[in-house]
Write a protein that binds this DNA or RNA. Structure first.
Lengths: 335, 335
DNA sequence: TCCAGATGCGCAATCGATTGCGCATCGAGC
DNA sequence: GCTCGATGCGCAATCGATTGCGCATCTGGA
C-alpha cells in the first residue's frame, strides 16, 4: 500500500522519475497532459509521497516539534491543541514530546527533535535557569519559540500571558468583594510564571489595599495546594493560587477541613482550564488567551523560518480575562 | 552544530564515510583503533546522526506513532506517559497525535504517521465502527496495537482492561455498603469500553441483587455526567459512571443540586486518574493497570516487528483494582 | 526554408547514512 | 619464500524525492 514509490508511478505512467516528481509537485516545466496522467496514475496506485525521502532532499520536514514539561497538565494539553490546529492550517505537522519537568530529559528530547530535522521548536521550558543551556544551543540551529514559561531572559522569542494584568484582575475582583487578607499559594521560582505571578499578586494586593498574610510556593500541582492550606494557621478572606491545579488542591483541602467556600474564604486559580469548571463550586480563574498565544507563537516561528534565525529576540504578552466562578460568588459569600 | 555530518567526521578522522559509519555503529570490520579515533572526533565535532538519512536507508525510523482521541483526557495522558517510558527503555521514540475524536482526522493522522515511516502504531481508536477502515488499512502496512478502545472485533491486536471485573468490583463494593438501586451514566456505543462497561455493570448489578433504575449514555466527558444527573428524577443509592470525567461531572451537578455525597447517594468512576483524587470528596474508582497495559502493548508491537505483521490477532485484558474514595465512604454514608 | 526561442522531458547529482563487494596488507604456517 | 586466510578499509550502490542542466522537438516569424 504505502510502499508505492514515485518510481512506480513513473513507470506506470511511462515517464521518468524526475518528470513524475515535477508532475506531482507542479514545479518545473511539464505539460498539462502529463501532469494529469501522472496524477491519475498516482491516485490509482494509492501513492503517498515518502516524507523521509523528501525531507532528506529538501533538508526540511514540514514538521514542528513541541516540548512540554507535563503532558498531564490540562493547560498544556490546551496549548498543544491550539498549536496543532494552527500548524495544520499552515500545512505543518506537530511532534509532541514530554520532558517530565526534568532538565536532563528535556535536553535529550531536544536533541532527538533536532536529529529528526524538525523545522522549528515550540517549547515550554522546564526550568527558568536549568533549561538555559539546552535552549541556548537549540536556538542556534533551528527557529525556536518559548511559550508560557521562559528560560533565561533574552535567550529566545517568547509568547505568554500578561501575568501582571491577570493578578490585578484577581486582586481587584477580590477587593471588590470585600477581601482584606489573602494567602498566596503558587509555583516556586523555578519557572518564570511562578516568579512573576507571585510578585505580581503581591504588588496587586498592595495596590488594592489587601494584606498578604501568607505565602506558600512549590510545584504547579495539587499537592502544593493541599500543603498550602494545611500549613496555614488562619483562614484568610481569600486564597489566591498560581494555577488551576493548585487551586483544586487548595479547594479540596479546605472542604476536607470543613471550611466553606466561598462563605468563609474565597479561592481563585489561574489558566482557565476545564479543571476550574468540574468542581463544585466552580473556580474563579484567569482565562489565558490560548488561541492568541498559539497563533503568535507560530507566527514568530514562521518569521524566523523565512527571515533566518538571526534577528532580535521578541517577547509578547497577551492580556487574559477574568472568569468568575462559584468560589467567589458574592451571593454565597456570607451565609 | 547539528549540521555536522558523517562525512565531516570521516574527513576529520582521515577515513572514508563508510568506515566512519562502521566505526560509529560498531557493525562490520573496523579496527578498535579506528573506532576509538572516529568516535573521539565525532564527539569533538558534536556529531549527531541524521535520523532522516538513516531512516531512508534502513526503511525504519526507530519511532512509534501513538494516536489518541483526546489529549486532554488525563487517562490518555497517563497512557501516553506509560507507553513513552516503556518505549524509551527500548531505544524507541514516540510521536504523539490527537484525532480529536474525529474519524476523518484520525484517518489523516494515520496516513501522515505512515508517510513518516513509523515502525509501528499504538492507537486508541476514536470509534468502534467508524475507525474500522483506517485501522484495517493501516494494519496491512505496519505493526499496530489497539489500546483501551477497540475498532471492530478481530481487526488487530488489542490490550485493555477487564471491564467486566472492574464493574463487578464496583457492584460488589456498593452492594456491600447497602446500595439497592443504581443509576448508570457512561459512554455510548461508539466505543468498546462504552458498550462493555454498560453491559458489564448491568450484569454485575443483577448479580449483586441491585436494581438499575436508570441509564444515561453519551460521550466520555463532564457534560455527560452533568446531564445524567440533571435528567434523573430520583436519587438512587448509587451513581455508577463510565469514567472519571463523567463521575466528576455527576458529582459536581449533585453538589449544585444540594445532594450530599456519600450521605444521600454514592458516586463511582472508572480509570483511576488523578481527577478522582482532586475533588472533595475523592471519588471511588477502578484503577486501570496502565503500566501493565503499556508494557503488553509494546511487547505485542515488538513481536510483530520481529516476527512479521501476519499471525493471529491477540487480545489481552488486565485485571483492574478498586480504589476507594470519599464518595463511598461508609462513615459518612448516613449522617 | 531557416533560425531563435520556447517547451517537454530524461539524465544524473544530491541529501546522509548504511552495507556488500573487492582490493590490499599482514601474519602465520609449511 | 610462498600461499592462504583473516583483517582493515575504500568504493559505490542504495533508500525516495527533488532539481539543474542539456538535448530534442515544436512553434512562430522573417
Amino acid at each position: 500500500m504505502s510502499k508505492v514509490t514515485l518510481s512506480d508511478v513513473a513507470r506506470a505512467s511511462g515517464v521518468s522519475v524526475g518528470t513524475a516528481s515535477r508532475a506531482m509537485t507542479g514545479r518545473g516545466r511539464v505539460s498539462a497532459d502529463t501532469v494529469e496522467r501522472v496524477r491519475t496514475v498516482a491516485e490509482g496506485l494509492g501513492y503517498e509521497p515518502n516524507v523521509i525521502g523528501r525531507a532528506l532532499r529538501l533538508g526540511s520536514s514540514a514538521t514542528i516539534g513541541m516540548l512540554v514539561p507535563h503532558l498531564e497538565n490540562p493547560f498544556f494539553a490546551d496549548l498543544i491543541r491550539a498549536v496543532e490546529s494552527e500548524l495544520h492550517r499552515q500545512g505543518y505537522q506537530l511532534i509532541i514530546a514530554d520532558s517530565h519537568g526534568d532538565v536532563a530529559v528535556e535536553a535529550r528530547r531536544l536533541r532527538l527533535l533536532l536529529a529528526r530535522r524538525v523545522d522549528g521548536v515550540v517549547i515550554v521550558p522546564a526550568d527558568v535557569d536549568g533549561s538555559i543551556p539546552a535552549v541556548r544551543s537549540t536556538v542556534e540551529d533551528v527557529p525556536l519559540v518559548q511559550v508560557d514559561r521562559r528560560a533565561g531572559h533574552d535567550l529566545a522569542d517568547h509568547v505568554g500571558v500578561d501575568n501582571g494584568l491577570g493578578m490585578r484582575l484577581i486582586a481587584r475582583h477580590l477587593a471588590g468583594l470585600g477581601a482584606g487578607t489573602a494567602l498566596y499559594i503558587g509555583g516556586d521560582d523555578a519557572t518564570a510564571p511562578g516568579r512573576e505571578r507571585a510578585a505580581a499578586f503581591q504588588r496587586a494586593a498592595e495596590g488594592e489595599g489587601m494584606t498578604v498574610v501568607g505565602t506558600c510556593r512549590g510545584r504547579f500541582d495539587f499537592e502544593t495546594g493541599v500543603e498550602g492550606v494545611r500549613r496555614s494557621r488562619l483562614i484568610p478572606d481569600a486564597i489566591v493560587c498560581g494555577d488551576d491545579m493548585i487551586a483544586l488542591g487548595a479547594l479540596g483541602q479546605l472542604q476536607r477541613q470543613g471550611v466553606r467556600v466561598p462563605a468563609q474564604t474565597m479561592v481563585t486559580g489561574f489558566d482557565g482550564t476545564v479543571l476550574a469548571t468540574v468542581v463544585e463550586p466552580t473556580v474563579t480563574t484567569v482565562q489565558q488567551p490560548v488561541a492568541d498565544i498559539a497563533r503568535a507563537a507560530i507566527e514568530a516561528l514562521r518569521g524566523r523560518l523565512e527571515r533566518g534565525t538571526a534577528g532580535p529576540v521578541a517577547q509578547q504578552e497577551f492580556p487574559p480575562s477574568l472568569r468568575v466562578g462559584g468560589t467567589t460568588d458574592p451571593l454565597h459569600r456570607r451565609d
